[in-house]
Amino acid sequence: MEPVIDQAFAATLYTDDDAGLDTGASLLAAAPTADAELVRRGEEFVRRAWERGWLPADVVRVVRRDLDEHAAGLAAGLIAAEVRRYPELPPRWRSQLDELPAAPPWGRPDRFSYASALLGLYRLLLALPVIEPVGPPPGAAREALYRPPVAGEPRMLTRIRALLAKAEATGFPEEAEALSAKAQELMARHSIDEALLAARTHGDRTPGACRIGVDAPYETAKAILLDAVASANRCRAVWNSDFGFTTVVGFEADLEAVELLHTSLLVQGTAAMTRAEAGQRAGGRKRTKTFRQSFLMAYAQRVGARLADGTARATAEADAEGGAGGGAGAGSGLLPVLAARDLAVGDTAEKMFPRTTTTRVRGATDLDGWNHGTRAADRARMGGGTPEIRG
């Protein structure tokens, strides 16, 4: 006789109707002896996701979006169980695992409902397509997993995080402006130092990639903000709107800068938008959706312009300092080094995404929202025509 799990899977995983889901859940609810094998099969589906290029945060994000928070918790439980089999994990996995939601208790609220939710999750996991990998899967050779840290990097990142945390927490726009500006300055100088160190030591570091979630609502404006932060930090960003994430390609120090700065600027922008919207509502306005969309579009464009200016200033200052020091460091050598790294990042992005498209997005339609967003970007210290994004 066919095992009950195979019967349940046959009824459920290769159809998309509720009747099959109910049939499979009924079979599993009546067979508690199959519970262990059911979990083992789920871990196998998760393992297949790694082989297709997915990371823990990617899986949880798409499950939460397409199913619900309960299913995201089920996925998190399977992920946590599956990764225990690996003695070492790729870079960035540990932080993603630490942020997973809590797994719900087994069999709650009842065996049928639990089995139904689990089968719905398995159906989604089985359908995940192959996507561009941004690092080795777990279980890869140790040399593929290990990326040696840059000298002094943890201390620098700790300082940058502290500055951005203060910028997010302060209620004074001028203080947030100064703190964010200082953080961006440190990021730009750290990137330059890393580039020069690699050139002097003939290091074999190559560009890598990471994924950053771009969640609804207003995901277009958020993707534009992330693209602006990536460009200012010498990275390339490609937005996948279908799966709700952007892949950022760049050197490791620059990728970390993008992750830190984007998160902070999004927090600052959202807080400023909420305050501005409250003022609009107090004045009797009702069009909050168009106000928010226009606010974030303006914020993203203005932030991008200011970030680009800051990076250009930091580069010019570092080049001048190197020249004043007799040419032993930056001086005549900095700009070619940065140009070579830009070329390497571009080549890597083109190889990863040979068929990207550049799309014009719909502009802002609320003048008040646009003006408030521009002023918020000025305060964050970080134009013009219709923005373009790659995806």
Rank of each mutant, 00 (worst) to 15 (best):
A165G: 08
L128G: 00
V134K: 08
R108V: 12
S116K: 12
A169N: 03
E143R: 12
R159L: 12
V130Q: 13
G139L: 04
L118W: 02
L126Q: 10
L128R: 01
R108I: 06
G152E: 12
R159A: 14
P149C: 01
L157A: 09
P101K: 12
T170R: 13
T158A: 15
A127I: 02
V134F: 04
A127L: 07
L157E: 14
M156Q: 10
D110H: 08
Y122I: 00
G120Q: 07
G107K: 01
P101G: 12
T170D: 14
G139T: 03
P149G: 11
G120N: 09
Y114L: 00
A117G: 05
L125I: 08
Y146H: 14
G107H: 06
R161I: 00
D98R: 11
A140H: 06
P101I: 12
L118F: 03
A165W: 11
R147I: 14
R123K: 02
K166D: 15
Y114W: 14
E99C: 11
A127W: 08
D98Y: 06
L125E: 06
G135S: 03
P101Y: 10
D110R: 06
I131Q: 03
P109M: 01
S113Y: 02
R147V: 15
V130N: 08
A167N: 08
A140P: 03
P136S: 09
A151G: 09
R111L: 09
V134T: 15
P129L: 06
P138I: 07
R111Q: 11
G107W: 06
W106H: 11
E143S: 14
A165Y: 10
S116E: 02
R123H: 05
A115G: 02
E168I: 11
A144L: 13
L164F: 15
V150G: 11
S116A: 09
L164E: 14
R123I: 00
P148F: 01
I160S: 10
T170W: 14
S113I: 01
P137F: 04
K166F: 09
Y146V: 13
L100R: 07
L118E: 05
E99Y: 07
P105A: 13
W106C: 00
P154T: 08
A162G: 05
A127K: 10
S113V: 02
F112H: 07
Y114E: 04
R108S: 10
Y114C: 00
R159N: 10
E168C: 12
P105Y: 07
G120S: 08
P133R: 09
A141S: 08
R142H: 11
T158F: 13
V134E: 11
W106S: 07
Y146C: 03
Y122D: 00
R147T: 15
L128D: 02
I131H: 00
E132K: 08
V134C: 12
L163I: 00
R111S: 09
R108Y: 07
A165C: 05
V134M: 08
L119W: 05
E153V: 03
I160H: 10
A169I: 06
Y146Q: 09
Y122E: 00
R111I: 02
L124M: 07
P149N: 08
P137C: 08
P133D: 11
V130F: 08
D110Y: 04
